[in-house]
């Protein structure tokens, strides 16, 4: 890494602190995980990942994260739109409340959702009358992941909605487009890149989520057992190789998503020309 001439001091110090901290806290531990995988070899890795229990846990984590993030894509867009475009009493409180999942510890969210949706809970007992069960099923996992992922979509889309020029919508209307057509053909394409980014961020967060899910999930092997929980179980059995294999698979999923986020942003920049 070469730096161009600058009269300011402290590049070496700042970069030194950053690289030292990044190495000790983040890179070396992740390196140890990769090293464990290399030491294990591809055969054992495949054997761990090929087991039915591991495969269904990984599939469940990914499927539930995908479902929750698609829900958040629609709900988050609508919520961001209502918060920026409409005026109603309590708007600022709702706006502040969107960040609640960022501020509320996941374990707290987990036991709170379980208390509400368990068969004895306020919502759970009402749903039980309709013959529906949320807690201790996959639907409960969706619910927890919707909770943790929602702010990512809202907070990514909201600033872009604020910056839409009213003149563009007026132009579309004067040219005879209905409101719905304006929204679909003018507004939505402008928001699409930020929606993709928000979706990818929510997805990345939900795939690895642990605290808010384990209380409401039921945690039955092959049915409602998420991948991070299986890592914890294997670690408690001191089966480091099995834990590392699942961890590596999840890391692979995360990296693919990080790549997707960056690719979206590059595409976004090329398309809009700024940001």
């Amino acid at each position: 890494m070469l730096r161009t001439t600058s009269p300011l001091p402290g590049f070496g110090l700042g970069m030194g602190i950053l690289l030292l901290a990044l190495s000790i806290v983040v890179l070396l531990p992740l390196g140890a995980l990769v090293g464990q995988g290399v030491a294990m070899g591809p055969a054992e890795l495949a054997q761990h990942l090929g087991s039915k229990r591991v495969a269904s846990a990984l599939t469940l984590s990914f499927r539930a994260a995908l479902i929750a993030s698609v829900f958040n894509l629609v709900f988050g867009l609508a919520l961001a739109w209502v918060l920026t475009r409409y005026r109603f009493p309590g708007r600022r409180i709702i706006d502040a409340a969107v960040d609640l999942p960022f501020a509320l510890p996941t374990a707290v969210a987990g036991i709170a959702l379980t208390a509400l949706y368990a068969p004895t809970g306020v919502f759970g007992s009402a749903l039980a009358h309709l013959g529906l069960q949320v807690a201790y099923t996959e639907v409960g996992i969706w619910l927890a992941l919707i909770f943790v992922g929602l702010p990512f979509v809202v907070r990514t889309v909201q600033p872009v909605i604020e910056e839409i020029d009213a003149e563009v919508e007026e132009a579309s209307a004067t040219l005879g487009a209905s409101r719905l057509r304006t929204l679909r053909r003018v507004v939505l394409p402008t928001l699409a890149p930020s929606l993709m980014t928000g979706f990818a961020l929510a997805l990345a967060r939900s795939v690895g989520e642990y605290g808010s899910v384990i209380f409401i999930a039921g945690n039955l092997p092959n049915q409602t057992e998420i991948a991070p929980l299986l890592i914890v179980i294997r670690l408690e059995e001191y089966d480091y190789n099995a834990a590392a294999a699942i961890g590596l698979a999840m890391l692979g999923i995360s990296f693919t998503m990080l790549f997707a986020i960056n690719a979206t942003q590059v595409w976004n920049r090329r398309r809009i020309g700024h940001v």
Partner: peptide
Amino acid sequence: FSVSPVVAGLSLVLL
């Protein structure tokens, strides 16, 4: 931000 907290903990245990 893109690494599961459980994977973070696991990595630290392995190191």
